[in-house]
Design a protein around this nucleic acid. Structure first.
Lengths: 141, 141
DNA sequence: TCGGAATAATTAGTTTGACTAACTAACTAA
DNA sequence: TTAGTTAGTTAGTCAAACTAATTATTCCGA
């Protein structure tokens, strides 16, 4: 029976998240694109074009950080920036076709390590992870 | 019903972990000690003294990275290093009393943000997170 | 026993991603 | 028109990750 004291849960969750991301880092390296970049690319790929401020907010970093990251992605041909027609101060960032291809390939490769291990779990365990992921996203809002 | 396709689970989990750690970073900053340091300190606090190589392995970073991190912790009086009596090449690292105090205080503070949100979850949701944490640790091995 | 290989830790150098500060350009309201 | 606000960019700084190189110790085979 898993413990349900919220402090214990928070501790375990925090620790597990750190470990998990470190494990995935190996496979991430194979895409030639870092985890923060893949994460931002993912937001654009699945959520559609957005402003830099919006993207920074979604990724919970400052606009300055996201500006640099997007510049790198643009240089790599993975995203495109256009001046926002309605507000000339802003830009609209969207994923390119190359970006989509990389996302799909990278998604598979990035998660192959995790995937292989997750595939060995029971259906119940996988459901538990999926459910927990959704809850974690709510905690992170 | 949560989806159980392993690739989808891996994707969601990866994304959620990134977000979660970013959220917690705010509270971590209040301890004056970074998340990687707290994590290493936690290993020592709960798992007992260990060699640098062992600690690096537990934290999934290179010995070089851990060497620097431990030096910083030692400078802050949070850990102590002793030459390993049985192998003069190695060191034995253990947490100090100060380190323990900080761990306890920092643990509370670090997780207060998460805690508050987790406390609002249902018992079932908390159990799900706890169970998922254990699974995630296994995935990270 | 001795020498070479392996091992444990440390340091230097590099890169990335996070932040803050400062700046420019555009927008909005008075 | 002007002052304040907002969106984005750039420069500088720092922490954490890596690799490469180095030093000291240990181990193992000849």
């Amino acid at each position: 029976m898993a413990r349900t004291d919220s402090l214990e849960v928070a501790t375990a969750l925090h620790r597990a998240a750190i470990r998990l991301l470190r494990t995935v880092r190996v496979a991430d390296d194979e895409t030639g694109v870092s985890a923060p970049k893949l994460s931002a690319l993912s937001v654009l790929t699945f959520g559609g074009p957005r402003s830099l401020k919006s993207l920074a907010g979604a990724e919970q970093v400052t606009p300055a950080t996201m500006s640099k990251l997007v510049s790198d992605l643009e240089a790599d041909g993975l995203v495109a920036k256009r001046i926002d027609r309605e507000d000339k101060r802003g830009v609209c960032i969207e994923v390119t076709a190359n970006g989509r291809v990389l996302m799909e390939e990278g998604r598979k490769r990035r998660l192959a390590l995790l995937n292989k291990r997750i595939a060995k779990l029971t259906r119940e365990e996988r459901a538990q992870l999926a459910g927990a992921s959704a809850i974690m996203m709510r905690l992170a809002e």
